[in-house]
Design a binder for these strands. Sequence first.
DNA 1: AATTTATGACTGACTAGTCAGTCATTGTCA
DNA 2: TGACAATGACTGACTAGTCAGTCATAAATT
Lengths: 229, 229
Amino acid sequence: MTSSSPKTPDATKQVRSPRSGRPNDPSGASNRAERAAERRAAIVEAALTEFIARGFTATRLDDVAKRAGVAKGTIYLHFKDKESMFEELVRTALVPLVNRIAAPQIPIGTVRDVIEAFAATFIREVANTRRGDIIRLIVAEGPRFPAIADFYYREVISRGLAGMRALIELAIARGEIRQKQLARYPQIVVAPAIVAVIWQSLFARHSPLDASDMLRVHLDLIFGERSET
Amino acid sequence: MTSSSPKTPDATKQVRSPRSGRPNDPSGASNRAERAAERRAAIVEAALTEFIARGFTATRLDDVAKRAGVAKGTIYLHFKDKESMFEELVRTALVPLVNRIAAPQIPIGTVRDVIEAFAATFIREVANTRRGDIIRLIVAEGPRFPAIADFYYREVISRGLAGMRALIELAIARGEIRQKQLARYPQIVVAPAIVAVIWQSLFARHSPLDASDMLRVHLDLIFGERSET
DNA sequence: AATTTATGACTGACTAGTCAGTCATTGTCA
DNA sequence: TGACAATGACTGACTAGTCAGTCATAAATT
């Protein structure tokens, strides 16, 4: 029974670290911790791409591993399982953005200016980026991942709507907005932005949508058309 | 139509033909074609429920069969495979509704009246029914089923928006709507309705939304508040 | 009896998650 | 500084389980 082991994993072993040939660079990016972080980032990037393209269930971790350039087992060094990976991804992909947007706005100019800046940020950072797809992903998978829906409601929706409501109330007090009931439904103000995101995912091929222009028209509807030349 | 409850597979081996004992009744409700249609309807009903709850990939045809009270093989007597079943389901679930809503509106009263009737229909027939979930399902699976996105754009979106645009233009001509640019983006008018559907699916548990009231406020925004003028 | 319709056990392809083994890097000591 | 030992990040073949789709058989109908 001296037969060699049936598995020959050594056959095609690629070089582990083609990292730039600096095995011990103090200022470089080649120590263990940093490369681990790089790999984790590659996995996150790849997983996000796959989840967006296929949804949770249809995404194969083999594909994620291949795309990230790691072995499947490596994924499990960073994440407990597919489900918690998905949840963590969706969370971390949105929190930085939300924190930035939800930062206390300084109403220097008119409320409309603030909301217009908000809209511009949304167009730039969400509507035409992968973050928009993440929003669609949340809509798609939310019902099956109550934890995600909970988190998202708590960290994004309730905070965002509260901030928007405060702005609307300020605008009403200042006379910028006539329709007083609007403060009860801040959703109305953001609805076209959400629709724009969905449109880009589903129908951009059929009929491109100028989201920026649409939001401008919507703000004209809310604040009245601009009379400045 | 599911006259009898389709979900009672508990009776081990249910009787295949619970008919009225008329083997050859021309006017009866138990000939082959009709029972086949009943079974098909039961399968459609069950499949829709499962697809809505779990999405396309995560839905098991074993579960659909169990819920419909048929054997799995029976599904394949009615549908070629899982994918074409899904596509056919999503299509037939919406077409009757769209045909009704898209029927030529007779603008007897004001345009606002027409749109308010439309909103009421939407609330009644979509927002709080399973059709709303189907809309979410399309958002969720659309990118992976281009055929569905195509069909939906052609049969629902483009038709619906064209009709809405015509109404907006009429309202502008009549002086009901001041904001002339609105005709370029009928999406703005329907956006809160879409958001309401999504909200019900994801966040109703956290914070119930009075969709009917929200749409009323939105129409006030577009047409101006009712009591004035 | 012949034909149509329904069944559900079965198959084969597919995939989440595991783990024994490898080896580049890091630590230790002379 | 150079040699050797220890570490643990990484690998990928493998296991155990799932599920879409099939088909031989059975039931119902004509």
